[in-house]
Design a protein around this nucleic acid. Structure first.
Lengths: 194, 194
DNA sequence: TGGTACACGTACCACCTGGTACATGAAGGA
DNA sequence: TCCTTCATGTACCAGGTGGTACGTGTACCA
């Protein structure tokens, strides 16, 4: 029987897990099915079998990276006061590979490459939305919450790019601390637009 | 005569310019020599002839992008008060392609791909260094200047990633304005670390 | 006029690419 | 026991890959 829709299975899950692990180390964009297959101990035939095509594999890996990203969002402490704790979590060396892969897929998606459809839609909004809601709960007006959430996301991603390039945990953390100190404003300071 | 070192020439410059232009639209990482050659009206043979190899072409394109990046740094107004003017320059739609290509190369370099050697070294330090010097001139202490320069770079790149993904010029600009407002501190506020 | 360096095209090479055809063997249900 | 489904391997395919061999026209210079 021809598989029209690629179903899930234990074997597929195992391969996907291994493929993501390999993507974390080596990237995904410019690797061939054979390179990936050899690295994770299978044949390129099996990747086609379980994921339908190369693009199907890329889609599956991208979704898995998105899923882990959301998971990280869900479990990380989200209160404003915990910003520094969130940053400390991000700089953990065990997350470097995942962050690097995230930026690789991000750049790939910016060029409109196949397999990344929908990635950009969630890349910003998926983070801004919950943080904004939290800030509104904390009593910040809507415009201010939107801007602050977006700014916080930008600071985090910008400093992660810095960290990935330089490896300078201490320096980027000092910059992050500076940001949190800037946020520690005299009460009543208006965060909204003009 | 066999060209051991690929020399510069008018023909090479013309091809490089066209190749960069094409990279701005289509990226560079996963394009073949033939695709690039066809798009810019030459043969893949000529790209090999003038750049030695595919990697040589990538190196040349990456260097050209770096050069333009430095040029932008050199000509942009750099005083702290001009931060907003710099941002307005960055969001100009004509720069989107260049920024996208910058992030593509950045991600490529993070994976240690050939042709990007040295890119990361300058990606952060090349911007932080002059800005830090400027801030020190403006009377900010050394530690504070380092952190502020790094934070400013992170905000800029993080919001550019947002802008490239969402196309939301107004929203990212509001977030940037929020950042500059946070910087507008009561005089004497200490920017240095604890 | 002859020589030389450059710029370029055509044809080719071995190798790699994603994808397919087909066989096989194991597991499990009737 | 037979039949089906799943998982897998081997062999193959057409087409694309970076790179090379070789020839050629042109411009300049002695």
């Amino acid at each position: 029987m021809v598989r029209l829709v690629v179903a899930s299975s234990q074997a597929r899950d195992r391969l996907l897990h291994a493929a993501v692990q390999h993507a974390l180390d080596q990237g995904i964009v410019d690797l061939s099915l054979r390179e990936i297959a050899a690295a994770i101990g299978t044949s390129h035939r099996m990747l086609i079998y379980h994921f339908g095509s190369r693009e199907g594999l890329v889609v599956a890996v991208v979704r898995e990276v998105e899923r882990r990203e959301r998971e990280r969002l869900g479990t990380a402490p989200l209160s404003v006061a915990d910003a520094r704790r969130r940053w400390d979590h991000l700089v953990d060396p065990s997350l470097r590979a995942q962050e690097r892969l995230f930026f690789e897929i991000y750049a790939h998606a910016l060029l409109g490459r196949p397999g990344t459809e929908g990635f950009l839609d969630e890349a910003v909004e998926g983070w801004v939305s919950p943080v904004r809601a939290l800030l509104i709960d904390a009593g910040i007006d809507e415009d201010g919450a939107e801007g602050l959430a977006r700014l916080g996301l930008a600071v985090t991603r910008g400093l992660l790019l810095d960290l990935l390039a330089t490896g300078d945990t201490a320096g980027t953390t000092r910059a992050f601390d500076l940001f949190t100190r800037l946020l520690d404003l005299p009460s009543g300071h208006d965060l909204g637009h003009e």
